[in-house]
Design a binder for these strands. Sequence first.
DNA 1: AAGTAATCGAGACGGTACGTCATGTCTTACC
DNA 2: GGTAAGACATGACGTACCGTCTCGATTACTT
Lengths: 207, 207, 207, 207
Amino acid sequence: MTHEDSGPSPSVSLGPDASRRSDRARRAILVATRDLVADVGYSRLTIEGIAATAGVGKQTIYRWWRSKAAVLFDAILDAHSHEGSVALPNTGDLETDLRLLLRGTVAALTDPSNDRLQRAIIAEIQTDSSIADELVRRLLRPQFDACAARIAVGVQSGQVDESVDTDLAVELLFGPIFHRWLLRTGELNDVFADNVLDKVLTGLRPR
Amino acid sequence: MTHEDSGPSPSVSLGPDASRRSDRARRAILVATRDLVADVGYSRLTIEGIAATAGVGKQTIYRWWRSKAAVLFDAILDAHSHEGSVALPNTGDLETDLRLLLRGTVAALTDPSNDRLQRAIIAEIQTDSSIADELVRRLLRPQFDACAARIAVGVQSGQVDESVDTDLAVELLFGPIFHRWLLRTGELNDVFADNVLDKVLTGLRPR
Amino acid sequence: MTHEDSGPSPSVSLGPDASRRSDRARRAILVATRDLVADVGYSRLTIEGIAATAGVGKQTIYRWWRSKAAVLFDAILDAHSHEGSVALPNTGDLETDLRLLLRGTVAALTDPSNDRLQRAIIAEIQTDSSIADELVRRLLRPQFDACAARIAVGVQSGQVDESVDTDLAVELLFGPIFHRWLLRTGELNDVFADNVLDKVLTGLRPR
Amino acid sequence: MTHEDSGPSPSVSLGPDASRRSDRARRAILVATRDLVADVGYSRLTIEGIAATAGVGKQTIYRWWRSKAAVLFDAILDAHSHEGSVALPNTGDLETDLRLLLRGTVAALTDPSNDRLQRAIIAEIQTDSSIADELVRRLLRPQFDACAARIAVGVQSGQVDESVDTDLAVELLFGPIFHRWLLRTGELNDVFADNVLDKVLTGLRPR
DNA sequence: AAGTAATCGAGACGGTACGTCATGTCTTACC
DNA sequence: GGTAAGACATGACGTACCGTCTCGATTACTT
């Protein structure tokens, strides 16, 4: 999202002259955004509030981000940037590995400290599809791809039928998990994740 | 408010004295809300705009609804109230019936005239969980229950393994569909729905 | 102000059919108006507040009075109706009698329990001159006329020059008093009243 | 805003940081206020109307003035600020000078183009005594002091008794004038002013 | 090192919408 | 038909934020 993806300060919009940009202000804005969303919720998050909390002029925010949603998105990216790569465990047993992955996803979604931030960005992408694209591209796709890769290994080792589309398999796994979280149709916990995994794997096994 | 509601003026919150309520105003508000969301999108939907379009005082909206989201939700309910019951077809073949159901769901989600209204309520339930509860209880649960009932018939006719939890089966089917629609991870069409159905049914068949 | 000036329920506007009028409601409205003005001041006096305090429907007020000012005016009239006639003392000495009158006026104006009510009607007559006419005709003119009559007696007894216009004399006396009270240009007390009286009488004495 | 005020943007309440204040907005607000009061009267004067007429945001008004009355008062002050000093003529004859002064006051009060503005501020000071204090201090007191000074000269030249309190004398003169204007007890014209002056001066002459 | 140009914190500005309050009209049910 | 109650359309209130703008005061490149 910045001019070089490997750089230290990813941003949705580059702005006029990024080299002069105050890193102190940028970090303060992202931290303030996270804190405020956690505190008061996204619906009460305001640019003025972020600026005041960060000790920053409003114009500094408008100079570098297109919208409140863009700030929020960078705040989330920034929070995830310390998580390291999306490597999956490979114990050799596909079911075990996927169980760890799904349970980890459940844990991340239900973590109260992230809940408001994550739901905020979901709410936002319903309106702003460019943010949706960024979200998929930078956060979700890498995870889904890693998961698909692990399933592909399962195909080679004979644990999964070779006719299976690995991308589809990923959505069969994550779909019900996100469905429960987003629509609040029921409790999201490890039992549910295990049940989903069991049935989906049954459908994917060689016949 | 749901299809079985025979009362004349359904509402999320009844307010002070529902017997005196003007039905003319209520209907105008719900229609205006639907029209405006379709026109300008939820983020630009305002109470003042609804009131002006409906030819109604703002106070009349605030008297009967707790929030903009509550109005929106009633507008959606009202739109669905004319749809008749949620009966599924029963051709005798489970796969055929479920294919029709999933394709219908895909069609409903991707229908451009509903898109903004539906996404608006999804955005809203991320913030307001009481609206989420209403949505599940009055709109989603009836459909899911109907689907689960059809699958239960499939168990009796030997098309589905008798160990299967029918509620879980429903989420395996709808989860990936909603996942694509909500997160915009890919194109949502009949091919995808058919693929989901195929793999899930494989996982559910008697062994 | 009513159809017969000597009747028991004076009102600025007669309304549709005064014979059916509820005297209970009328009295409750006037009392509530006085209480509320004293409590919260005229600027926060509302028809709804009067109706609620009086335990009366709003329509009952609108049916019998043309405006909030009219209610207020009747409330003042009603308060003064218990005061008896406007007889002045006649000790034989004009200065003594006028001193008592002016000091009484000062006392009435500075009485904190009447202050808000009186100032409210003053504020109102700046906007509504029909109320001003009523005020002068029913409250002020009788007092001024009584005062003028007393001065006329002074003319006959040789205490005032016979060329003096008694109406003018009255305004010379009351003018400075009201001036201080209305414009708040200084403290209004007996000393001031006595000084005014002294100088004005000097100007009026036979030469 | 008084005669000795040399600053460029006098205001009742200075607010947050007067140095940043837009003079364009301030002037537009005061002009709009005057125009609107003259047009529709004080009772129909609204902040929203002022803002709209002045082409200004409502917040700009609320930022710099505490109330609608404060705006009105500044509008009056601003109108008077172009009048130059409050010097009285000094022809050598006290009666002539005071006659000019009183007739000028009568003319100012009965001028239809000022009537609504002046009555509005009178109505307002009945409720808000801080505005009353400002009015006296900045507009009335300077005029009264000038008048008192002229009378003091009359004392020295033997036209007025040396025992006379000049401030009292001023109120004897202006009191009846304002009384007629405020209470609408009779017609306010030059004849009345001359009569008042005649009697008051008689009371003030050396004996 | 001085000059200069962009960013910074601050906050006033013209606006829009908020949610509340009061207006004056109306309808309903009771007496 | 008057009454208490209160819903209604209207419109102003005073507040909160929006996104733009203008101010000095840094700050960091340029010469």
